[in-house]
Each structure stands twice: as C-alpha cells, then as structure tokens.
Design a protein around this nucleic acid. Sequence first.
DNA 1: GTGGTCTAGACCACA
DNA 2: GTGGTCTAGACCACA
Lengths: 125, 125, 125, 125
Amino acid sequence: MKFDDKVPIYYQIKQYIYREIIIEHLKPGQQIPAVRQLAVTLTVNVNTIQRALSELIDEDVLVSKRGKGNFVTEDTEVLKNLKKRTVEEQVNNLYDNLTALRISPDKMLTYLENYINSRKEANHD
Amino acid sequence: MKFDDKVPIYYQIKQYIYREIIIEHLKPGQQIPAVRQLAVTLTVNVNTIQRALSELIDEDVLVSKRGKGNFVTEDTEVLKNLKKRTVEEQVNNLYDNLTALRISPDKMLTYLENYINSRKEANHD
Amino acid sequence: MKFDDKVPIYYQIKQYIYREIIIEHLKPGQQIPAVRQLAVTLTVNVNTIQRALSELIDEDVLVSKRGKGNFVTEDTEVLKNLKKRTVEEQVNNLYDNLTALRISPDKMLTYLENYINSRKEANHD
Amino acid sequence: MKFDDKVPIYYQIKQYIYREIIIEHLKPGQQIPAVRQLAVTLTVNVNTIQRALSELIDEDVLVSKRGKGNFVTEDTEVLKNLKKRTVEEQVNNLYDNLTALRISPDKMLTYLENYINSRKEANHD
DNA sequence: GTGGTCTAGACCACA
DNA sequence: GTGGTCTAGACCACA
C-alpha cells in the first residue's frame, strides 16, 4: 500500500479500515487480520498498526478480545453512522474547498459531471 | 487561521496562498505581504512561512525580487494552470475516495446535490 | 464477570477468590470449583485460572490435594489475616491516594460519609 | 518514581499528572516539563510519556502547542471536574470493594477512623 | 498464536 | 529546543 507522506500513516490506515468495513470486505463481527499480519501486508511497523487499531477500538468500530484478536463491531448503529459520516466528510470537503475558490454550487456539479465523463472516456481506451 | 494538525502547516499555507491567488485576492504581479507580516496574520513561525514561500517560488507561482519582496507571477499560463490543477485535484479526490467506497458516479452527483440543498436550507436559518 | 483491562486478569481472579473466602461463600476446608468450571463461570482461559490458583496455593490460602481438587485452607490464622490484610489494603489505599491530593483525614471522613448518604438516597429510587 | 507493575506505566503517569494539577504543583496555563525532561525525571521512555500526555490532551486536561510544549488547561470547568472526579473515584472504589466484602457503611467509617488514628500515632514516633 | 506495553533510537515539523 | 511519528525489537498476559 502506498501512503501519502503528508498525513500520518496511522491515520491513513484508519481510513483504509473504515473503507474495508464500509464496502464489507470486512463484515460485521468478522475477525480482522492479526496485527502482525497487517504490518506485513501494509509494510508498516506493528506499533503503527496498533495506534490505528486502538483508535478504532476507542471509536467502537472495532472490538478487541484479549488474546483472540480484533473484530469488526456488530453494532449496526455504529456501522451505519460510519458510512454516513465518511461519505459526508468527503462531500463536505469538496464543497468547502471549492467554495473557498469562489466556485458556485452549480459549477461544482458541472465540474463533477465533466470529470465523471472524462473518466468514462478514459476507460474506453 | 485554523490548521488541521494532521497535515504540515507549511503545506496548508501553500494551499492558502494558492487560494488567495485563484480568487484574485492576490493579483498577478502584486506584492504579497512581508514574511513577518504573514507570520503574524497566520500566527505561525517565520520559518514555516519561509518554507511555504520557497516552494511556491520553486513552482514559479511566486517571484522573489531581491531586497524588494515576493510577487505573484504575471505568467498567465502558470496562473491558468494553477486554478485548473487545484480544482481538478479536489474533484479527483472526491471521485477516488467515493469510488473506493463503491459509490457509483450517479450516486456521487446525487450526494453532492443533496449536500448543496441541505446547505441552502441551513443558510435560510 | 467483568474485568478491568488495566490489571492482569489472573490478579483480579485472585482478588475475587479472596472475596469469596472472606464472605464465606467458600468456607474453610470447602472444595472450590474445578478449574474448568471456574474457567467457564468467569469466561476466562484455563491457564489464567491456573495461574491465579497456583499463587493462592503458594500463599497457603488454598490447599491442593492430588487428584482430588483444591480446597480452602482450614488454618484459621491464615484466614483471619486474609480478611484483615484485604480490608487494610483498601483503607490504606484510599488514605494514601487522598493524602497525595492534599486532602486532610477529616475531609476524607466527610467525603466518605457524603458518599454513603448519596448511595442511600440512590437506593431509595 | 516507583511504579506498580500490575498497572500500565503510562496509566500511572496520567494519575501522577492529575495529582500534580489537582494540588496545583502544576498551575492552570503553566507549561509542564518537556517530554524528554519528564522521561528522565520519571526514568521512563519518551514514548511512554507521550502516550500518557496524548490521552491527557484528548481529555482536554493538557493543551499542546506545536513546537512550544504542553500546558495545563486554563478551562476552570475541566479543572474542577478533574478534582471532583478523581476524589469520587477513590471513595467509590473503597465503597465498592468493602461492600463486596459485606462490610456495612458504618463499619467502613469506623475502619477509616481507626486507620487515621493509627497513622497519627505512627507519626508521633 | 494474539494483542498490549515498553524501550532505544531516529527523523521530521515547528518555534 | 519542543513535540509527533515511526521503526525494530522485546517481553508479557491471555487463549
């Protein structure tokens, strides 16, 4: 996995796990890979993984069982919020950043449409 | 100014200056505030400002004139690209992040529309 | 049983057994539940129970009889000390911790009285 | 400083800093010793200090200023709660633990009084 | 085997 | 100088 060196790695790992849960690569109640396994997969130090996980545990997204491993929560409320919060954050971000560039909401939609179309074409190559 | 403590401050200052130029708060050829002035305005250390500026000079967005100060470039090519690149980056970001969440382009547009509408209502309060 | 995850579980199990003996849920000379039974009751691994028990045996609080099981000691001296030591530890703890907060002995008593009264009221709900 | 090896060191450091703030060895708004200084004073690794501090920052008990250092909060609300919460926790603890030993509230008070008296005498030696 | 904690040491952003 | 992050490696509690 490639990391953006402008943002802490542990933070990017959190985002990665959010995504894996949201798209149900990691299902509710499922055990996530062992800390040492993740460290290898993501080519990152065990402590960095630990830091990400311990924040996810604090947020009740993961549940830690002593000596057994870490598991995705089964709390559907938490899971629903997770998706909602994550998507909203993205959209909110775009909106704020483009507004700061004095781009009107209408233009934002146009930009996004155009971008989507350009990607479609690119995929036809 | 508030900074996100997950991203280097000098980097956020660069973004800030990009914005000021794009929305023409800082016009082509205009002298930008003195380093010490910026440091006070942004409540940030002089070294941090320097780092941001020197990268902007490397990118030809700013031009440094010995003993006079720093100026926004007058190269219209650079300026046009600056805006285009900045906007595209934002849209690209949203697209990639929502795609990673398995959200279709159509749904992205819907999310953005809904968000825009919710903001309009909020502003009527 | 719920465990405080800041303290080793085997240690908390020791405390639990001390309590059961002090309040005579486990009587002098009585056989205590089998290791596997305790493991189920406390939802804890057998090894963890073993570790707690072997320390209790070392302390002469429990007596192990080959092939028969583990028994509460009948040594009244040991039992009397057990209670005394356990209570004293608690009181000593409170005293030390509050003294470290510069709270006078008089105030400690007041705090305890107030707390007891607040609990009484809570129980009337 | 001596640490109890039954409880994580970072946790004991948190308690230590709570105490220092409550007894105003560390005053509101005051800068606390540098991380590396604390590491030396408490003969503990820098990372262990960091872990304790970052939790205290999360709890708004400390405020971190980039490149400057860490400071005791000036939020009087937080500080008042800190003392209240800390004392209550202690008393609550004693109450629960002695109740589990089937000791009545009245007896608790007697035990505490006796203990206080025994300490007074000890000090006369 | 699994996670939790700690250490020694390094490098970086920021003041 | 000050804190934040990361690494390599160790040891321990628990399953």
